[in-house]
Simulated assay, not measured.
Amino acid sequence: MSITAAPPRNELVERVTRLQPLLRAHALWTEENRRLHPESIEALADAGVFRMRVPARYGGLESDAATMVAVGAAVGQGESSTAWNVGVWFTCTWMACMFADEVQDEVFATPDVRVCGVLSPTAVAEPRNGGYVVNGSWHFVSGALHSQWQVIVAMAPAPDGVQQMPVLAMVPMADLEIQDDWRTAGLRGTGSVTTVANDVFVPAARVLPVPLVLQEQYASQLNAASPVFRAPLMPVGCASFVGSAVGIARSAMDNFLERLPGRKITYTDYESQRHAPLTHLQLAQASLLIDEADFHARRIADLLDGKDASGDTWTIEERVRTRASTGRAFQLVKSAVDILNTASGGSSVFSTVPMQRIERDVQTMNLHALMHPNTTAEVYGRVLCDLAPNTPFI
C-alpha cells in the first residue's frame, strides 16, 4: 500500500471545517435514525479523518495530538454525535496499533477502517486451541454500526492460572451480534448499541493483557519507533475526545447567534434580545467558558505531543491531571451550553432547533465514566494529597 504524506494541520482542519454544513444538514436525520448519515461517513473518509491515527506504512497520517484536537473541534462544530464517534475512532484505531504487526496487517487492509470499542470487561475469555473463546456483551459501543472491528475487553485466566485478568482483543464486527437498544436522551446519533459475542474464537495474536497495556508494553515492533504510538492509553483517549467537546460548545454559540437577530424577549418591552444587558452577560460568560475549555484541550494536546517528542516518562501527576483537565473541559462546555440554552427561549424546544439537541448531547457526554468531572477531579485531588490514584486508568 502506498504511503500518503500527511497534509499540514491547517489544511486538514480546513477540509473538515468545510464539511460542517453537511454535518448540520444531516443532524436531525442522524438523531431520528440513531446512527450517522452515510454521506457524513463518506465525507469524513474523503477528508482523511479515518486515516489520522493510522501508521504511515498503511497510508495513514500519524497525526499528532494537536491536529487531532483541532479536527475533533471542527467536527464537533458541525454535529455532536458525529464528533463523539470520531473521538471513539481516534482512540480505538490508535489502540489497534498496540497489537502485533500481523494483526495490524489484518485491520488496516480495509481502507478508511473504523475500529470501535469500550474498556468494560463484561465478557469471559477461555483459552482454547491457540487462542480464546469469548462469550459476553458490551454496552455503549459508539460507532459500532459503522465499524469493521471492535476492541473488546474480557476476563481471562492470569499467568498463574488462578486469578483472572482483563485482556484486550481485536474482533471483526462480522463475528459479533448487535442488539439495537440505543434509545437515549442524548447522543442518539452515535448508535452506541450493545454488541454480543457467542462462542467467538479469537487467535492469541489478537489478544493483549490489559495490565501490560496500561504500562505501555505494546506488542507492535514496527510502531515502536513512532512517538505517536508509544504514548500511554489514557492521555491518548483524553486528547481524542476533548476537542470534540470544545467544538460542540462553539456549535451552540453559532446556533444562538444565528437565531439572535430579530428575537424578542416575550412579555418584556425588548423588541430585540440583543439589546438586553442579560443577553450581553450570558454571551460573555458562555464565550469565556468555551475559551477556558479550549485552554484545557490545548494543554492536553501540548503535553501529549511534548512527551511524544522528548520521550520523557509520564509522571502520575501528569497522567491524572490530563484526565482531570478532560473532565474540567467537559464541565465547562456543559456550563456554557446551559447558559446558551437558557437564553434561547421557548421556541428552542422544537426538534428542528439544534440547541435542545446540543444541550442533551452535552449532558450525556458529562455522564461518561472516563470523563465525568467529579470522578476525574477526585482522582486528581487524591494525588495532590499524596495518595495513590484509586484507578489504573490514568
Rank of each mutant, 00 (worst) to 15 (best):
residue 261 P to H: 01
residue 267 Y to M: 07
residue 312 D to L: 13
residue 240 S to N: 05
residue 315 T to H: 07
residue 263 R to S: 15
residue 298 R to L: 02
residue 305 D to W: 10
residue 291 D to P: 00
residue 239 A to T: 08
residue 306 G to S: 12
residue 302 D to C: 03
residue 273 Q to G: 02
residue 309 A to L: 12
residue 292 E to S: 05
residue 268 T to A: 11
residue 245 A to Q: 01
residue 256 F to G: 02
residue 298 R to Y: 01
residue 288 L to S: 11
residue 307 K to S: 11
residue 248 I to G: 02
residue 308 D to L: 14
residue 308 D to I: 09
residue 240 S to E: 04
residue 314 W to T: 08
residue 267 Y to G: 01
residue 309 A to K: 08
residue 270 Y to S: 09
residue 249 A to K: 00
residue 274 R to E: 14
residue 309 A to Q: 10
residue 303 L to K: 10
residue 239 A to Y: 00
residue 292 E to K: 07
residue 289 L to Y: 05
residue 294 D to Q: 14
residue 310 S to N: 13
residue 254 D to M: 10
residue 313 T to Y: 00
residue 249 A to V: 04
residue 296 H to N: 13
residue 282 Q to A: 15
residue 239 A to I: 04
residue 314 W to C: 10
residue 265 I to P: 02
residue 284 A to N: 09
residue 272 S to L: 08
residue 315 T to R: 09
residue 307 K to A: 12
residue 259 R to I: 00
residue 237 G to A: 09
residue 316 I to A: 06
residue 300 I to L: 09
residue 304 L to N: 05
residue 311 G to H: 05
residue 242 V to H: 01
residue 302 D to I: 03
residue 251 S to V: 00
residue 259 R to Y: 00
residue 292 E to W: 03
residue 262 G to D: 07
residue 280 H to I: 11
residue 283 L to K: 08
residue 304 L to Y: 05
residue 274 R to I: 11
residue 273 Q to C: 14
residue 299 R to M: 10
residue 300 I to G: 05
residue 301 A to Y: 13
residue 291 D to M: 12
residue 285 Q to D: 06
residue 290 I to K: 08
residue 287 S to F: 03
residue 310 S to L: 13
residue 294 D to F: 01
residue 292 E to V: 01
residue 304 L to G: 06
residue 301 A to C: 10
residue 276 A to V: 10
residue 242 V to G: 01
residue 242 V to K: 01
residue 297 A to M: 02
residue 264 K to I: 09
residue 267 Y to A: 09
residue 294 D to R: 10
residue 266 T to R: 06
residue 253 M to L: 14
residue 280 H to F: 11
residue 295 F to E: 11
residue 315 T to S: 15
residue 304 L to C: 12
residue 306 G to F: 04
residue 314 W to P: 11
residue 303 L to T: 15
residue 312 D to V: 09
